[in-house]
Design a protein around this nucleic acid. Structure first.
Lengths: 335, 335
DNA sequence: GACTCTACTTGGAGCGCTCCAAGTAGAGCT
DNA sequence: AGCTCTACTTGGAGCGCTCCAAGTAGAGTC
């Protein structure tokens, strides 16, 4: 059956086929404008005929440049990175860069990072949390999201989570809610949202009502945390979960407690995930504008590639409140 | 600020540092057993001191082997591939292979595939759909999932979707449901599940009730498809959606139609996603055992790498029904 | 006709590794 | 002491490209 070719055509084969030198082929490949039209056509035709495909390894080795950027995410199952990725791609692809993604979760320690450094990617995006702090990684690096894991010398792009939380609290208080509980969980973004919630409650002149600090930031944790919350603070009229997935769990807990959303309790998530958009949940949430974060990330990448020695840049993107039917004006008997 | 090193240490630097030849360093890197303990230690120490990291490009070029396998998925937002990936990794990582993932969705045409071929991955996994059929790709290839897009000479591993659908129909009919509707959508797996549903209904001696063929396979499509279904076949007592996400939409449509799940209608999804496990949905569904599919894929990959010329292999993995609270015995007044 | 340009084109060196044939040095034997 | 082994070590060639200095040829100039 299939037996695989022992040797693919190289630039020399193309050169011979087209009757030119290998250097000329190289020029065509990098589409230089120093090549005459007829020769260019001859080379392209030869490439076509031979099914030639440049060896990325050879190119990278010779050029000392991979034209590839690595994006390190922490978990494929948490798809917030998808919009980020599109945003980055939109900026860097026209500049001739390819993106490769690696997940931190499955790799022990920071071996995904090691992998990128070994592949000599030209630049790195760290999206999500890193196992440990790192000194300068030796290549242009942009950290997206929290600053928990500083990479020295790296640019930093993030959605303004404190602002997002303020939008949530503002929305709820406008609807008449004051006794707003928060279900938090593990991890950097939960931590940031929690801190902003605490500040925001102080601004509203009320004390914070928090549960779930010992929970995973997932559906299960949202469920358990909400049960804790309702148990400790039965007076809450609104629940703000650290993210949409936790809100999904919260919704189940509220239902079990006999509190209908939104009549007996308002519920807010964070992330504007597909989940939040689903009719069955129809969750009020915060859109982090990860596409915008991605665009800013892409620009930062190109900027630092062009000018490696400028001072680290920090960009904050304003989030957007997305109001759906899981929040409503507090009902008279609850107020 | 940060200015990036002009040249990373090479194998020669390590050799000089350790007082050995570059070849010896290479042997240590590939941990050959032809190296004496003291020299090995000296080399390892030198590597440590210099922060040396082998250049993947140089290694790939010299060895004509990348020790990397490409996995082509179609959409990061549909995380069914995550378990598959773990399964594959579990098998191929011990054999010294790295995995890289690329998404087909954002790349125009099959440029992700082109990317892999250009990077000279040692083997390829095509998970999900390919834009077009391909002749032998020139490297060991395993197709995971449907056979819609045959790659000639490739091995084929799939979850037995027909069996999964039979499990669903068997479960529902055991609960007394006969008028089972199906909400389908676009794409290969929806098509396969639909075909199995049609066959299964024939076996049950009832005619199929189908809607949603014109819908995307997402929440929105599930919602719209279910509305169509209830409109065309108001007599259905159970709805089987092409996947969990569509079932989420279906759930909303059922609710709007005043049919409580599971009392007034049973609902079944497919994929056993995180969504199905969420308490708020608690959806009966089918687990495709994608981890098992991944293990089989990994084994097929290694087998074909070792023995390129054997006849294509085809493996089918038995799925598993996961019963949750979205299905129940048909109530007396509906039966 | 000799000379200068301009517009391409080319060979060579080298990127950082692997792999192989060819060393080298003890140890064991006679 | 000389020889054979075994157990390591080593230099060299080459992987498929890029990049640069150095060609070459035809057109334009005087």
């Amino acid at each position: 059956m299939a037996s695989y070719p022992t040797s693919r055509p190289t630039i020399y084969d193309v050169a011979a086929e087209a009757g030119v030198s290998k250097s000329l082929v190289s020029l065509v490949l990098n589409d230089s404008d120093m090549v005459s039209a007829p020769k260019r056509d001859a080379v392209l035709a030869a490439i076509e005929r031979l099914g030639y495909r440049p060896s990325r390894a050879a190119t990278a080795l010779a050029a000392a440049r991979t034209r590839t950027m690595g994006v390190l995410i922490d978990d494929y199952r948490n798809p917030w990175f998808v919009d980020l990725l599109s945003g980055i791609r939109e900026v860097v692809e026209p500049a001739g860069y390819l993106l490769t993604v690696a997940e931190r979760r499955t790799s022990s320690a920071d071996e995904a990072l090691e992998g990128f450094l070994g592949s000599r990617v030209d630049a790195l995006v760290v999206a999500g949390e890193l196992a440990s702090n790192h000194a300068d990684l030796g290549i242009p690096t942009v950290v997206v999201g929290g600053r928990d894991h500083d990479v020295s010398g790296a640019d930093h792009i993030a959605s303004d989570e404190a602002a997002g939380v303020r939008l949530v609290l503002g929305h709820l208080s406008e609807l008449g809610h004051l006794r707003i509980g928060h279900v938090t969980g593990r991890g950097g973004s939960a931590r940031r949202r929690l801190a902003a919630y605490v500040d925001g409650m102080a601004d509203l002149g009320d004390s914070p009502r928090i549960a779930g600090g010992d929970q995973e930031t997932n559906e299960e944790g949202g469920y358990a945390g909400t049960i804790q919350l309702l148990d400790a603070y039965p007076e809450v009229t609104a629940v703000f979960a650290a993210n949409d997935t936790m809100a999904l769990g919260a919704r189940a807990a509220l239902k079990e407690a006999g509190r209908r959303v939104p009549d007996h309790a308002s519920l807010v998530g964070y992330d504007d995930s597909l989940l939040a958009r689903a009719r069955f949940l129809d969750l009020t949430t915060v859109d982090s504008r990860n596409d915008e974060v991605g665009l800013a990330t892409g620009r930062a990448l190109l900027r630092r590639l062009a000018e490696p020695s400028i001072a680290p840049l920090s960009v904050v993107i304003a989030p957007r409140l997305v109001v759906r039917s899981s929040t409503a004006r507090i009902s008279a008997q609850l107020a």
